[in-house]
Amino acid sequence: MQPPEERDEVEMLWLMLLIRRFEERASQQYQSQKIGGFCHLYIGQEAVVAGAIAATRRDDYIITAYRDHAHALARGTSANACMAELFGKDTGCSRGLGGSMHFFDKEHHMYGGHAIVGAHVPLACGLAFACKYRNEDRVTLCFFGDGAINQGAFHEALNLAALYKLPVIFICENNLFAMGTSVERSTSLKQIIQRAEGYDIPACIVDGMNFRAVRDKLAEVIASVRKEPHPAFVEARTYRYRGHSMSDPASYRTKEQLEKYRLDDPITRLRAQLTREGTLTNEKFDELDKEAKRAALDSVKFAEESNEPPLAKLYDYTYAP
């Protein structure tokens, strides 16, 4: 069995910075109408995907919902390809045909970008089924929000995963809200993980604002799933700083709540940990941040200069040849 690649914590800090700076640029470009449709930002939740990715191998599969920019970046899709997708350009990761909610990157084992809440959870079972079918020891990470756990598709998928002992790790990114609906107003159980327990799937909770906590817990879970295929469930408690989408003023939550989570910022936290331990200087951090900002800015330039998908290709992807 191949071990996970060691991912340098400084490298993962850089990834979180890249995600944040990329999305800040995306937000700005959305406001100047370079980006259309719906656009959901991940800012605040970076430690979840970074921690999870740090615990995976590069050939593991991931799949997520529509808040997907970070997942593609974490998987190694270039900032250029991500921004170009938002701009609807031919150089985008989905050739400008998918948009913000539908990022795909086969090369990096990123299986979407899915915009119907809950609909991709069964797909994750299919990915995991194929791995088991072929006797591969890959695992599939399936990300979704707290709102997805009330969809029928979610329930059917969990049962199938448990029944067929599929190597899939369900990661619920609990940011407390599904649009304007808080978890208490949407879910009958006190604890989200009880949902998984109801299907006899081992489940745990991690602090999704803490990179190391996510990584270490996921490393443990993944090792177990890789050894003997079975599903697992992780609830990562996190928070989105921005509204649900670019058009949501988020007036259903308090300033105090937002401030509380901002003070617990995942980037600030990892930075402090690394600085305290002597692995990171302030100069090095500034350099990383400057790099991240530059990469984000460059991606805008790349997207602007890229070509639109040709009209002649309109029919090319409706059916496979």
């Binding site: 259309g36 449709g37 609807g88 350009k89 989905s94 400008g96 045909l97 998918g98 948009g99 539908h102 639109e308 998908p309 009209l311 309109l314 029919y315 992807y317 409706t318």
Partner: peptide
């Protein structure tokens, strides 16, 4: 047209 809807504005 008889295709899934593309995101790109022109398309």
């Amino acid at each position: 047209e008889d295709v899934p809807m593309p995101y790109n504005e022109r398309l």
